[in-house]
Design a protein around this nucleic acid. Structure first.
Length: 413
RNA sequence: GGGAGAGUGUCCCGAGUGGCAAAGGGGGCGGACUGUAAAUCCGCUGCUUUACGGCUUCGAAGGUUCGAGUCCUUCCUCUCCCA
């Protein structure tokens, strides 16, 4: 459905990034002339972003690729308030120190997807703490607050849902949308920003910004949101057994990241190739037609492409090779997650499982053994009193596995 | 300020007559089947050096009782109604 004049909207539309847009035609005209300066806000609620934010990052990526200017807005200020959108319960207020730490952790990932600099359509990174923390309460109420109707705020989904479900919504959270709206105006004034993008749950917040801009006399502002990405099975994307799929390499290794994509459900392969890789669409179309076991090849390509984008081609190749050795040859591979252990007099299997992170307690480890899930050097373990000693070392490590997919190398230190 | 109700296995929902490590479900993990998929079926899902044992769990603290998630008191948090 390539009905747009601009590369930007054509790509977004054909790859499945668009959920809602405030004025498609107006935006298309701007994009055609490469006159869009768009921002997306990222709150600093964790030390790393996770795959849930990847769609947003890709939006900025394509924006820049099509000649427009991206702004990454770090929510150093708004995170101190807390966004109630899409949440049933208020989250704990984070300390300012934590927020700053999180911000540093999050920032690093963008360099992989965007070209930063100070010329042309180089990307910029800004922190809304810069202006939000300087606001004075009375001045803010008079300058900004008077433009907001509480009647209307109460109808916003983020607020309405809390009220309907009879869940607490604190006053500080109630203010979040005001601050986000103001961010948009501030960015419009400072950087000539004219588009805010975000996940579909941000629609209300973004539109508030547009309204505020009109009342405060900015140029015309636009909104564009991406769909909430769920798995074909209906589950929210990005949560796995071991928690969120973090983007930072020190929180989730390239190998584990590769595995995450390798394990994509069949029904999601095509959609994910479009959203999370930059492969040409005709190639994607070919791959998603693969049926039966052949679709595994498509999943490998997805894993390679997605891992390359985030960690670089070398890391992706290495992860692919580790996976190939582990799963296709059944061998022990260097690239598997490694845990340092002290063998000394011998290490009990239960303790080893706990140290390797495969079990959270001795009891859980014992149950896993009783359930037949554990293997040492690919030999099934039935005895929970087994002691690991140096005799089991192979190439300097012991391969400890739980189930088919979880493998850890124990290395003596 | 007055009145009514609710908080259960630290992932979530949720039953619970004084004998309860506590029903059931979801989720998760493992196994079988496959293709490192989905669906389905089966097992496990508080801790504890392995124990028909011990310990710690039902918002918090006390109390009654041989014995308390269950009864009593006080407190905390949330919701609703009235002001």
């Amino acid at each position: 459905m390539s009905t747009f004049q601009s590369d930007f909207l054509n790509i977004l539309s054909s790859r499945g990034y668009i959920h809602q847009c405030s004025d498609t035609a107006g935006l298309d005209a701007l994009a055609k002339d490469r006159k869009i300066t768009a921002y997306i806000g990222f709150d600093c609620t964790a030390p790393s972003l996770h795959v849930g934010s990847l769609v947003q990052i890709m939006l900025l990526h394509w924006l820049q690729q099509t000649g427009n200017k991206p702004i990454v807005l770090m929510g150093g200020g708004t995170t101190r308030v807390g966004d109630p959108s899409g949440r049933d319960e208020s989250r704990k207020l984070l300390s300012v120190d934590d927020i700053e730490n999180n911000k540093r952790g999050i920032q690093q990932v963008f360099a992989r997807f965007l070209q930063f600099g100070s010329s042309g359509n180089d990307a910029a990174m800004v922190d809304n703490a810069e202006w939000l923390t300087k606001l004075n309460y009375i001045d803010m109420l008079r300058d900004i607050g008077r433009h907001f109707s509480v009647n209307r705020m109460l109808t916003m989904d983020s607020v309405k849902l809390r009220l309907e479900r009879e869940h607490e919504l604190s006053f500080i959270e109630f203010n979040y949308m005001v601050l986000q709206a103001y961010d948009y105006v501030e960015l419009a004034r400072r950087y000539n920003c004219n588009l805010q993008m975000g996940g579909s749950d941000q629609w209300g917040n973004i539109v508030n910004g547009i309204d505020l801009g009109r009342r405060m006399g900015t140029h015309q502002l636009y909104a564009l949101t991406s769909p909430l990405i769920t798995l074909a099975s209906g589950a929210k994307m990005g949560k796995t057994a071991s928690g969120a799929v973090w983007l930072n390499a020190d929180m989730r290794s390239p190998y584990e990241y590769w595995q995450f994509w390798r394990n994509t459900e069949d029904a999601d392969v095509g959609r994910f190739l479009r959203l999370f890789t930059t492969l040409p669409l005709d190639e994607v179309a070919r791959l998603e037609k693969l049926g039966g076991a052949e679709i595994n090849d498509a999943k490998k390509i997805l894993a390679n492409a997605a891992t390359s984008l985030l960690h670089g081609a070398a890391a992706a190749d290495e992860a692919a090779e580790t996976a190939r050795k582990t799963f296709e040859e059944g061998a022990s591979a260097e690239g598997l997650p490694t845990v340092g252990v002290t063998l000394g007099e011998g290490l009990g299997i239960l303790a080893a499982l706990v140290q390797a992170g495969l079990a959270s307690s001795n009891g859980e480890a014992r149950r896993s053994i009783q359930g037949g899930a554990i293997r040492v050097n690919d030999e099934p373990v039935r005895d929970d009193k087994l002691v690991l000693g140096e005799a089991l070392l192979k190439d300097g490590s012991i391969k400890l596995s739980m189930g088919k997919k979880k493998h850890v190398l124990l290395k003596p230190v």
